[in-house]
Design a protein around this nucleic acid. Structure first.
Length: 610
DNA sequence: AAAAAAG
């Protein structure tokens, strides 16, 4: 029987018995009060007995030094009191006497399932999906632009997120930061706005969650609004699909375990009452999909006036035609603090130029970060394109699946994710696969949320090793052990292709992606050939031919990257006009260096691969 | 034209 970090931690907490009597009724205690002296802190609502039981052990003001007031670097964070927090008052953990009852004792250990999952994975060839293959990330090109860019770090120890978060990082089995984390975390800890591009599966979620959680832990107390049944989260994380919001919530709960920072998720298709109850119990970071958030805002059950941190995952998707009005409403028309007051972070694997332009509206003096061949896939994914006429697609898929099953270990079907264009097409293909002896399920927007979640679970567990999906599953979902992504129908947008195939080849593992190309995909020929070339993939001659014949589509111009990855649209525009973006002579720095380069910068060098 | 996101 395995003993996990988390088990050890929960034992610690239980044995670290709280001598303070618990109140009978629980009241939300904001994180900045949970471990602080009562003296001059504004009184939380609730009976005095609760306040007396805070067990104040520190002055709390050591969490001062708001990152936003220090424009320089994230380094000022180092050793600014976390160690003291750990030892202070005899508690080995921060916030272990919150409000007279210890929420952390009732906090479900988010790591308990990890061991079970590991056991379940015996059937798979690899264990420890959380362990990242860092060899795969050597020599990754990095580009940064903006003013006063904080230097990257090489280890989590350098970042010093505090003992509780360090423990959680160990529990997650993260040995060292991924390239995007190495650059993005110091930037975010420095209080800077950020537009970050990094390859699919390279650890973006932690890159924005760590700084938000750490920032909230450092928060000075006192400013938090309260009133009625309205809750006032400090951090807001938006994502384009319900499942992705759930996944971010699950991750964030691990990162914030026992820190006293409360993360709540809200999304549509699920009973709102349950989510309202969760919110009432207190929320520091709200993870949400846009529709449900607007609903909550209109009901005045959530107010954004205390938001200090705003993160958009899959930010280019969030700002494209479908979502942009909703996002604009949330960010501009509600009570959210203005840009420059809040800290805004946008993350995606792709960032088309015109979306960057749109996005700059939400940002203030931001840093642009591109890690890896952005808008490209990793070369960990073997990409194949086959010309398959519509009428042959089914039988061709069947051939692939048969071959896969025969080559698989113990005749087991490897997890295969099949993307189709329409919801109807998804249902139809799933049914056909099932009656032909291939256990499948499907996920798309016409299914109930329950069905969607069941489908995802069933796929992840290997019970139905084939998942037929629409683009609802194209972005962000981290499904370990997806061996094969099939683009049964290719998307119209090359960026969607990049995100889809990014469901495999995650965390430094390899994967296979097969696309069925037909006459209806001619406009994709050129960008597809480019993406494949960027990733050192073999481009079939017939595709090169189509690509050379294809007219320059607007698609090409809006490509997020050029041949060498992401580019800050501010730089492109200033080059075009032969003007400095800031009009001040130094618009920033770009690093044409390997990602693990830890030494001095090369200012003035735009990029080594340009 | 399609998908997603509120009900």
């Amino acid at each position: 029987m395995r003993t996990s970090w988390a088990d050890a931690a929960s034992e610690t907490v239980v044995s670290n018995n709280n001598p303070v009597p618990r109140p009978s009724r629980h009241t939300y205690v904001p994180p900045h009060l949970r471990n602080s002296a009562v003296s001059d802190a504004p009184a939380p609502s609730g009976p005095p007995t609760e306040r007396e039981s805070f067990g104040g052990n520190t002055g709390g003001s050591r969490w001062s030094g708001s990152s936003r007031t220090k424009p320089e670097y994230g380094r000022q964070m180092q050793g600014n009191g976390y160690d003291a927090a750990g030892r202070d008052g005899g508690g080995s953990c921060r916030n272990n006497r919150s409000g007279g009852w210890d929420r952390r004792k009732r906090e479900v250990n988010p790591f308990v399932n990890d061991d079970k999952v590991d056991d379940m994975k015996q059937g798979f060839s690899e264990h420890e999906n959380t362990v990242i293959n860092f060899d795969a990330y050597e020599d990754i090109p990095v580009e940064i632009s903006g003013e006063n860019v904080p230097p990257p770090v090489n280890t989590f120890a350098e970042i010093d997120l505090g003992e509780m978060m360090n423990q959680n990082i160990r529990r997650c089995k993260y040995a060292k930061p991924t390239p995007v984390q190495r650059y993005a975390i110091p930037i975010a800890l420095g209080g800077r706005d950020l537009m970050a591009c990094a390859q699919t599966g390279s650890g973006k979620t932690a890159a924005f969650c760590f700084p938000i959680i750490s920032g909230i832990m450092r928060e000075q107390y006192g400013q938090r609004a309260r009133g009625g049944r309205t809750v006032y989260p400090l951090g807001l994380i938006l994502s384009p699909t319900r499942e992705l919001s759930c996944q971010i919530h699950d991750e964030a709960k691990k990162f914030s375990y026992q820190t006293g920072v409360k993360v709540v998720v809200a999304y549509g298709g699920a009973p709102i009452n349950q989510q309202l109850r969760e919110l009432e119990r207190g929320v520091d970071i709200l993870v949400a999909t846009p529709g449900r958030l607007v609903d909550l805002l209109e009901r005045a059950r959530v107010s954004l006036q205390s938001i200090r941190y705003l993160a958009l995952d899959e930010a280019d998707r969030m700002l494209d035609m479908g979502f942009e009005p909703q996002i604009r409403k949330i960010v501009k028309q509600m009570d959210m603090p203005n840009r420059g007051v809040r800290q805004t972070m946008l993350f995606s694997a792709t960032f088309p130029r015109e979306i960057q332009r749109l996005a700059s509206d939400f940002l203030s003096n931001y840093i642009f970060l591109a890690v890896g061949r952005v808008g490209s896939s990793t070369d960990l994914i073997v990409q194949r394109v086959e010309f398959v006429p519509e009428s042959d697609k089914r039988s061709h898929l069947m051939d692939l699946l048969h071959a896969q099953r025969e080559n698989g270990e113990h005749g087991k079907q490897a997890l295969t994710l099949v993307f189709v264009e329409t919801k109807k097409g998804a249902d139809s293909l799933e049914h056909w696969l099932c009656i032909n002896g291939f256990p499948s399920t499907t996920i798309h927007g016409d299914r109930s949320q329950q069905e969607r979640e069941l489908a995802l679970r069933s796929f992840k567990s290997g019970k139905t090793p084939i998942l037929v999906a629409t683009d609802v599953a194209a972005r962000g979902l981290d499904i370990p052990h997806v061996a094969h992504v099939v683009n049964f129908d290719l998307p119209n947008d090359i960026d969607d292709y990049v995100h889809r195939i990014g469901r495999t080849g995650r965390a430094g593992k390899t994967g296979l992606a097969t696309a069925f190309f037909d006459e209806s995909n001619l406009s994709l020929a050129r960008p597809l050939a480019e993406v494949m070339q960027e990733a050192n993939q073999e481009v079939p001659p017939w595709l090169t031919h189509y690509a050379s014949q294809a007219p320059y589509s607007s698609n090409r111009n809006r490509r997020s990257g050029g041949r060498f990855g992401g580019c800050d649209f501010r730089r492109e525009e200033s080059f075009g006009k032969n003007l400095d973006y800031y009009g001040r002579g130094s618009s920033g720095t770009a690093f044409g260096v390997p990602a693990d380069y830890g030494g001095a910068y090369v200012p003035g060098v735009i990029s080594a691969w340009d």
